[in-house]
Design a protein around this nucleic acid. Structure first.
Lengths: 191, 191
DNA sequence: AAGTTCGGCAAACGACTGTTTACTGAATGG
DNA sequence: CCATTCAGTAAACAGTCGTTTGCCGAACTT
């Protein structure tokens, strides 16, 4: 799996080969089939591995909520750190989310949906969300998740070549956008 | 190019083969090299083709601005229609935006950046944007573009299998999100 | 101690790959 | 009308591919 993830740095799952993976891992081609029936199967497992750390991340953000402004700074910083520390996994997710392998795509989508649900319940606990309908909460959660995904992708690209200025610019933009969203949230009157 | 686009429906550019394309097009493999040096080159041309129609689209949305509410409805509807009518191109963009072929990725990114700039200048003309700094306008434009991309991807997935209910749900969510953003926009005090 | 599962190997199968070469007919242009 | 470009072909090159098969030692179970 490490070998696969490493090769997926500049390639996508659909173009990955069994022989390629086993060669990188220092095994014989036949050895692969002892563990996975397919390369798609390997992909699905990588999805699970990749998103496990994401759930940890979100909890670490929402845990300490000392005011909206600080939470925003913290969220953006956590995303940046997460991308930095799990770049191969994040890149894999970004690449395969709309990639050519249906089963992997569906796995990511399902997991991201559960992720939005989790964010939704967390949002519901905040005082700002009083009087919000179920639908409105879900809509907001999806907006946050989509924004997180976009931001993570941007960080990813910026970190490919080390470019601290670009990275700071992305962080600044993300913070402003989150501030604008939370402003809209405070003035929301229901749908 | 049509053959390539057709094959890219369930495959990504990196895993596409020259022989595959020429076979689909009914030509000999060597004929390909009369037109492109690379498959990546074909990809880049496809990017340009795909985004040309996008610029037309944005203008058609911003042209008639009769109130914010109506503009939102119109924008979401135009996105839905655009995805419906240019599904192969949109799918290609979504897939290759983070795909394995660097040159194509960069082409898409650059084009999307110019797109955001265009949206930015359009936003500047609206009365709501009085007193907005350049940076804030850019940030808002990027938020809109990212949101548009997310929405388009969602429509894409929903239209793969014909699922009108899911499509309506996506449209409704997108509209709510745009309303929330424009609410935040009205209460923005500058950064 | 015996049996079974686990994770590995080498070898072979036919099929498919990108690219180059030399050649050909049609259109184009001066 | 002749030369040239254009867009196509078939054939060959040396590889790589996924997958199956039969085999083997080590580890674990009972």
């Amino acid at each position: 799996m490490d070998a696969g993830l490493h090769l997926l740095a500049d390639q996508n799952l659909a173009s990955l080969g069994v022989r390629e993976v086993t060669r990188e891992a220092g095994l014989s081609p036949a050895a692969f089939y002892r563990h996975f029936p397919d390369l798609a199967a390997l992909g699905v497992v990588l999805v699970e591995e990749s998103l496990a750390s994401l759930h940890v991340m979100i909890r670490s953000v929402l845990a300490e909520a000392d005011g909206a402004e600080e939470l925003i700074d913290r969220a953006v910083e956590v995303i940046r750190q997460h991308v930095r520390e799990h770049r191969p996994h994040v890149r894999f997710l970004a690449r395969e989310r709309h990639g050519g392998v249906r089963r992997v795509r569906e796995a990511i989508d399902a997991e991201l949906g559960r992720f939005a649900a989790e964010v939704g319940s967390a949002l519901a606990l905040q005082p700002v969300s009083q009087g919000w309908s179920e639908q409105d909460l879900r809509m907001l959660a999806e907006l946050y998740v989509d924004h997180m995904v976009s931001t993570a992708s941007a960080f990813l690209e910026a970190q490919e070549e080390v470019d601290p200025a670009r990275e700071r610019r992305i962080a600044a933009t993300a913070r402003l956008q989150l501030r604008l969203i939370s402003l809209g949230r405070r003035h929301w009157q229901g749908s």
